[in-house]
Design a protein around this nucleic acid. Sequence first.
DNA 1: TCGATTGACGTAAACGTTTGTGTCAGGCAA
DNA 2: TTGCCTGACACAAACGTTTACGTCAATCGA
Lengths: 339, 339
Amino acid sequence: MTQRLGRTITQRGLAELAGVSIATVSRVLSAPQDQRGRWASPETVSRILELANELGYKRNPHAASLRTSRSDLVGVLVPRLQDFVLATIYEGIEEAGMELGINTYVMNSHDDVELQRLRTQVMLDRRVDGLIFGDARLDAPFLDELREQGVPFVLTSRRKEGHLSITCDDYAGGRMVAEHLIEQGRTDVVILGGLEFASTAQDRTHGLIDRLREAGIEVPPERIVYRGFDTAAGRQAMAEILEDGISTNAVFAANDFAAIGALGVLQDHGYSVPGDVALIGYNDTPLAESVGIPLTTIRSPMHPMGRESLLTLCRLMAGEPVESQRLAPELIVRASSRG
Amino acid sequence: MTQRLGRTITQRGLAELAGVSIATVSRVLSAPQDQRGRWASPETVSRILELANELGYKRNPHAASLRTSRSDLVGVLVPRLQDFVLATIYEGIEEAGMELGINTYVMNSHDDVELQRLRTQVMLDRRVDGLIFGDARLDAPFLDELREQGVPFVLTSRRKEGHLSITCDDYAGGRMVAEHLIEQGRTDVVILGGLEFASTAQDRTHGLIDRLREAGIEVPPERIVYRGFDTAAGRQAMAEILEDGISTNAVFAANDFAAIGALGVLQDHGYSVPGDVALIGYNDTPLAESVGIPLTTIRSPMHPMGRESLLTLCRLMAGEPVESQRLAPELIVRASSRG
DNA sequence: TCGATTGACGTAAACGTTTGTGTCAGGCAA
DNA sequence: TTGCCTGACACAAACGTTTACGTCAATCGA
């Protein structure tokens, strides 16, 4: 945190003090640790390093970016940071970025197609080297267009056919839910799917119904309702189901928050959980464990997902071979479905 | 989203095509809308503007920052983005920043003094123009040191004596809770205070006990426990209280999440809410409304707090007069404390 | 009528890096 | 001895803006 009083120190300053040219300073300072010797004698190297350290030299990233046209900046777009899941994924991204000396910065798109476009442009205007999208929509051509322009990006949380993505294996997660319900003998299922245009919603839902179908159980369409991933959406979806007079002994919500919303409505209507209805969420947020009736849920590797997406983006930008990954989910059985 | 195939277009390119000097282009492009005429004839102005638009010219922010040594970047440090409250505040910051053409970027400090220092340095190295701290600690000298260096910053969410801050009037919030409890005749109070080094915790707690004292009611120290703001902390704090055999008919948690954690523990121990115990949270997060027993809470203006802190920082950096603000909280009475 | 002002630009010097090309001495093989 | 190589640097040209100073007409006030 050494800050010079007068002028902030530059490579020129170091060069003068060390009695070498600014070119040498630059090469020594920007070479990887083990290769500094390639450009200067050991004494020169250590002299420069010491001086830099002592005077608190910090490279001016604007100047460097201008010269190299690389910013070491990556932009991250998420639906909402308020969403615990995305916030956690972002923490993983930030953590990995920090380790690699890459700065990340994040914006909210509110799942709005227009905002998505606008925010992306803002980030490109800031000359980010690459992008991470946590808000991919199955129904929008935006990402396909973006690829035309040759901008490197990876998706996380949600995937989209034909694009590089690091996600949870949501389909497998859905199947786990189905298997658990079959074991418990609760197959009169209702699905609060989340947002229809999100692969997370689709994959979780289809994993569940596919596996049930394999067991000879059909889930008719009126039992699947897409309202959103948050608490309010969970309330609304559950309320609609009950109003429609649909009877059920198992509710799967594509998100813990939606599940908690649903829980409130179920209790208001006099259903006991898990007595009358088993309730299962998704993501294993801390709330799942702490809420009145501990929630059975699928644990998704949010933090690792974030880390891995940043690392993958870096590999992509470095021209290394990369491929999509689906990280394994895990079933966490708690009181809300034991019965 | 026009991207040139060959070379990205620069001011030089525009200048050549428009038949003027690059200086003129720069002046026209960077003057505020209403002052473009100051630097060129109307025809020249519109020619440049049209060309810029047509070719999709975007100023290179690195070059501009290098020249002006202003980055239009502000750094934001929060304890955790996972925390709904801080995430919402950040949304406000981002929103205001976007409107002013200022890019914000955010990092997590995990309330760790060392990390706070490190992350701040990373941001300064990135040459941010200013900083917003959402993680001020009453017990750390870090901010005082930072001011010595002349870095402009403002605090939000938490305040600290002697520093510019935009917060909720938490002391008033605490008093509101007290008044509500007095009205309800529930004065056998227990306080789950949050984190002791946070002004939010201190102010809310002291507002509450001061007001109770004015009504002739003392809250002895063993009834105040600081464990944290999240669900897990709420659980732990509540559990400790009950284990200590402290009897109570009213629990105030300095945060909705802590309140929800406490709710679980209370129910586990066979207490009914609000029958046996009134429960009150803070912040009015969406969960407060949606959880099984709707939670009485204090609504704090999170989003406006974020907006205002960014605006204040900008005024500060522009040399305009600024002062700290404490935005008004509001009591939201729900089922958890009625009865 | 003439100096002063104004409008409409142009020149050129930064800002702090990075990097392709030198340069130059010393060492080596032939 | 000569030619070549190599280690250890130095030179200088970018990168794309911004901005302090010009310059040069046309206009204006007295």
